[in-house]
Design a protein around this nucleic acid. Structure first.
Lengths: 230, 230
DNA sequence: AACCGCTTGTGAACGCCTGAACAAAGTCGC
DNA sequence: GCGACTTTGTTCAGGCGTTCACAAGCGGTT
């Protein structure tokens, strides 16, 4: 078989590929069969050249002079991103945010299935959220073992996040999405991504203050963190 | 008066400053009066040298040989980040995610106050979420004008996000936090930050697949997007 | 009063990512 | 069948961010 090129896909590119995939889904629903890099880039909010560079990591997947096949590119992206098979996820901490995530249709439609909801509050345990029962936190290891989940989402208070993380890792979870406002420590080989909602707001407040002119400090722009100004 | 240095604070640094501020709050609660860069960096999950560089944008705020004053640094960071005065925010789209945000104690304690909740669903309008009444979407402009809100949070479905965004901007909102999975188009002078939850999960799925060894593609690491592996 | 150790602050190198310009390739029209 | 146009894929340079390493400065001690 041909030697598959040992291409390195930057993580920033992977994140954008996920965006392209969603845009493509919308185009497919609209009946489109092909797209140009310019159009796709505009819808995704990125530079056309950057988009082509991103896609080039996957090898040639467009037709010169024509553009990209919506169906073909969608299939390729799905394959690369690992979305062909449904991935079982466990969610620990069924508070308001956890409930919102458990019930978010956007996940299920993209191949993510919450197979276990866990909480330590006896009042929450036993209730149903998004059609799934909430299990007591003690069953974490059992749920992970039974479902074979490799992705864990932490929406607990900060104080217990590290403990929950350790238990998830010990149970075999290799990828963790952390909403708790703490820096988690994990062994090598485990990936953690952190989403910090209050940090996002605080950055906005900073930019707001800058504009008010009360301070002369001006923030340098980071293109990938902001919406395009077209 | 002395010429305030026209320092440019990178946006990535601003985001980390917010993290440092939270860690400092925890240290203050613990009774600590001073910290070293190494300790603070460890708690925040960053490189000590990077932390010192981040803080250096604010001018000297530590004491050599000793470390940083917890109270002093906290005050300085609060000032720089614009957290001294409470900032009014409006939240559009009171679904599960919107409700979770409206009720999130972490915001209020950091100087963010939701002064207006808006939704277009008649069944949601009139209810109370987090102690605040939900107003009909038609009142968006009126609410923004009355409250003087300059920060808007969008948790609507993707289809209406751009329309809501346009109305927010027209009403005077200058900073927007967007949870809807679309790239918003805004005029210059308006800042948008985007949080895309399913993209986060999809990146994890990609890394998961990489580890499974089914594909030889390895993602390059981006230090700022991942938790430290210590 | 001077020395020593500790910690900050900064300067420079390295690497990654982004944005633009160019060449390759395929299609449509004549 | 040939030419011209369109759009991709790639190469190159520029900017930004991170990291390492060292000098500067302060407190405590003798």
């Amino acid at each position: 078989m041909s030697e598959s090129r040992p291409r390195i896909v930057p993580e920033a590119t992977v994140a954008r590929l996920a965006v392209y995939l969603r845009v493509l889904a919308g185009l497919a629903d609209g009946g489109r069969s092909s797209v140009s890099s310019g159009e796709l880039a505009s819808a995704a909010g990125v530079n056309p050249a950057g988009l082509r560079k991103d896609l080039s990591y996957l090898g040639p997947c467009g037709v010169r002079g024509v553009g990209y096949s919506v169906a073909g590119l969608r299939e390729r992206l799905t394959e690369v991103l690992g979305g062909e098979r449904s991935r079982p996820c466990v969610l620990v901490g069924i508070g308001r945010l956890g409930s919102a995530l458990a019930d978010y249709a956007g996940f299920a439609s993209r191949g993510f299935e919450f197979v276990g909801l866990l909480d330590s509050d006896p009042r929450t345990v036993g209730t149903e959220v998004g059609g799934l029962p909430v299990h007591p936190a003690e069953e974490l290891e059992a749920v992970v073992a039974r479902t074979g989940a490799t992705i864990g989402v932490i929406t607990t208070p900060a104080e217990v996040a590290q403990t929950v993380c350790d238990r998830l890792v010990a149970a075999g979870v290799r990828s963790i999405l952390n909403f708790a406002p703490v820096a988690l420590t994990v062994p090598a080989g485990v990936d953690v991504r952190k989403v910090d909602l209050s940090v996002e707001l605080q950055v906005l407040a900073f930019l707001d203050q800058q504009r008010d002119g009360s301070a002369p400090v001006v923030a340098a722009l980071r293109a990938d963190a902001r919406e395009p100004v077209r």
